[in-house]
Computed example of a mutant assay.
Amino acid sequence: METTPAPALSGFSSLATIDLGAIRYNVAELRRRAGSADLMAVVKADAYGHGLVPAARAALAGGASWLGVAQLTEALELRRAGVTAPLLTWLYVPGADLGAALAADIDVAVTGLWTLREVEAAARECGLPARIHLKVDTGLARGGAWGAEWEELMPAVAALAAEHVVQVVGIFSHFAYADAPQHPTVRAQQERFEGAIAELTRVGITPQLRHLANSAATLTNPSAHYDLVRPGIAMYGHSPVPDLGSSADFGLREAMRLTARLAHVKDAPADQGVSYGHTYRTTAETTVGLVPMGYSDGVPRNASNVGPVSIGGERFTIAGRVCMDQFVVDLGRGTSARPGDEVVLFGVGADGEPTAQDWAAATDTISYELVTRVGARVARTWIGGEA
């Protein structure tokens, strides 16, 4: 069968195209919504799969004044790439090279007594004051100090601050129900957060920055903006609260377009089982197309028989089980599809393409997972800015 090359995909069986202009645009929109608060662009997990360094630069160009990452290795990678913006890392284990963080002018989170002692040791060894952000657990029951540990942590921090071993730059926490802004825990966590700020004041600590709002709170809860907001998924163009509004409703543009090329197209008879276990059977004579992406590339296995794709502007659904390297689409009779044609897994909703949120709804997950799980075999390209 004659092939139809797709120039943008030439040489690649699958491709993630990241629009840095969309990231800049989204950050500018989030910065506008944040009012007087500054914005920390969260670029953890390889910028949610969009490329750590190019996405960070795009976010800064869009108006972010801070960058945030989970792990220290991510922060150090940004510094090695020449990114000099204020930068916070908040997730590490005992023995982490905090001295390297301090030497690279990276702010670190203090989430409990053991982290404070590790930060203190690094600061004394380096001879540099550690810039820290205290994390108080206000009800998520994940990272951060609460209860007796918080009570013990505050005077210990105050003593080290008086010695100029640490500089308390910020206090922060994280919502459990930010995607449900009317949930009673939201207000309760804000009250606990404000209480912790008052407690710090009483021991002589006045943080420069108070930050609590993630993407959902940035978009839906101005009372939680404080001095700094920390959007993640929204800066990549996805709604963190799809029940309340789509990306378009919030003025956001999807930044990642995930595509593949048909590897094979062939006729199939009626009542033919397709893929492993024959969980899909053709209902009439038809044509099937083979897409060379599978769960090793980030296509969820539970997208079997439900994952949406677009070929030639027409919507289809995965036929049968998603395999490690491939899946099948029932193209119907009379299709003009040929090997090499572009298959859009998810892209820009405003252009009529399936979106990561469409995939999330089909597979009972969230858009965050879909964009971050795109595998290493998928080629990446960046458009609309410095890559």
Rank of each mutant, 00 (worst) to 15 (best):
Asp227Ser: 05
Val265Asn: 03
Gly313Gln: 11
Ala255Glu: 04
Gly313Asn: 09
Asp19Gly: 01
Ser367His: 10
Met235His: 06
Gly385Pro: 03
Ala55Gln: 07
Leu87Gly: 03
Val108Lys: 01
Ala284Trp: 08
Ala379His: 12
Ala104Glu: 08
Tyr236Lys: 02
Tyr226Gly: 03
Glu369Phe: 10
Thr206His: 13
Ser275Gly: 08
Ser367Ala: 15
Arg117Lys: 12
Ser275Asp: 11
Phe316Lys: 04
Pro181Phe: 12
Pro222Met: 07
Ala109Val: 08
Glu151Gln: 15
Tyr226Ile: 09
Trp382Leu: 12
Ile311Pro: 00
Met293Lys: 04
Asp364Ile: 05
Ala361Lys: 05
Arg33Asn: 00
Asp179Ser: 10
Thr286Cys: 13
Val306Trp: 03
Thr206Leu: 06
Met256Ala: 14
Tyr295Ser: 05
Lys44Gln: 11
Thr17His: 11
Ile132Met: 08
Ala109Tyr: 00
Pro269Glu: 13
Gly204Gln: 05
Val306Asn: 03
Ala356His: 06
Gly62Arg: 01
Ala360Phe: 06
Ala121Thr: 02
His183Gly: 07
Asp325Leu: 09
Leu140Arg: 15
Val343Arg: 00
Arg373His: 14
Ser310Ala: 15
Ala337Arg: 00
Leu212His: 04
Ala188Asp: 09
Arg192Ala: 14
Ser296Val: 15
Leu113Ala: 07
Asp358Tyr: 12
Gly294Pro: 08
Ser13Lys: 07
Val42His: 00
Gly298Gln: 05
Glu191Val: 14
His264Asp: 12
Lys44Val: 12
Tyr236Cys: 10
Arg373Gly: 03
Phe175Asp: 03
Arg80Asn: 00
Glu152Asn: 14
Glu2Ser: 13
Tyr295Arg: 00
Ser304Tyr: 07
Arg333Val: 11
